[in-house]
Design a protein around this nucleic acid. Structure first.
Lengths: 155, 155
DNA sequence: ATACAATGTCGGCCTAGGCAGATATATGTA
DNA sequence: TACATATATCTGCCTAGGCCGACATTGTAT
């Protein structure tokens, strides 16, 4: 299989890595802005990064540990500890020591966290739809497929 | 134009935003690892983030200011100041006050920075080709097009 | 039972980005 | 000229992630 890029004619500013980094920066910035602007969510002061973690805790109800989240999100364990600290301080997440395996700490969204969930999802969907403006459903499907393939290539 | 996502059946873990964030995390981590592992570059201690900035300074030889770089890279001005500090401390970049407009500080890659450039590009190309393994050139073209359209939708 | 390895959480230290305010310089206007 | 405005850089404070080592707990091999 031929390589996509060659060193001799590689143009960094047109590479997929560069484009993807910029798109992601713009998407997260938009998400941050709109989370902060939303009248229902502004009081919580939830950032885009916190939102991503919170979604994982509310979405599928199964109890999860911090290390579970780290695996799902390619996240550093130390960073996760501090992220949970911030979410706990805001009253959106609870820590509960597991009695079977006392190394584990199960994480659970609080009532406030669950209550904010639908609105947060709506904001996220709105941002993504805006970035995908003009995309046919098949285009979005293609793009998802490409990203999934790249993720598999990561090892 | 129809929306791609709907709130009622939105699955965060399959969304394009989520996938793109993860791909980008994996790509940057791979770039960091390989920059640190490369025998020619390890001594410089250049991170992926520093690499991105350095590429912009060596690539097209025109003198650039910090604010130029911020616009190109969607970068915060304060963060750029500190990034330049780190690159300067490593001897890869020089600051030169502009005499015509004394607000400006032109940035220039040093000899050491320019010398490391080809090897850094080779590492970057290698990482991206690995993530695009199995992609036909037309696939890569399609993906670039999608990303460019999303960037334009950002406003 | 003891020793060792593996796992989960946490804290310290680093790089890193966003935001707001301060400062210096340049430019346009009355 | 005097003043307001815009621009460029820098600094402080916050959130944030990666790496490493400490610590407790659990599982495994001897």
């Amino acid at each position: 299989m031929a390589n996509i890029y060659e060193v001799r004619n590689y143009e960094p500013s047109q590479s997929i890595g560069y484009l993807m980094t910029r798109v992601r920066v713009e998407m997260l910035a938009a998400l941050d802005r709109e989370l902060a602007a939303d009248p229902h969510l502004a009081a919580l002061g939830v950032t885009a990064a916190q939102f991503v973690v919170l979604v994982r805790l509310v979405g599928n109800g199964s109890k999860k540990s911090a290390s579970d989240l780290c695996k799902e999100l390619s996240y550093d364990a130390g960073a996760m500890t501090r992220m949970i600290d911030r979410l706990e301080k805001k009253g959106l997440v609870r820590r509960m020591r597991c009695v079977q395996d006392r190394r584990l700490i199960y994480l659970e969204a609080t009532e406030a966290g669950r209550a904010a969930y639908p609105r947060m999802i709506a904001v996220s969907v709105g941002v993504q739809n805006r970035f995908l403006r003009g995309f046919a459903p098949e285009d979005a499907q293609m793009l998802s497929g490409y990203l999934t393939r790249m993720l598999n290539n990561a090892g």
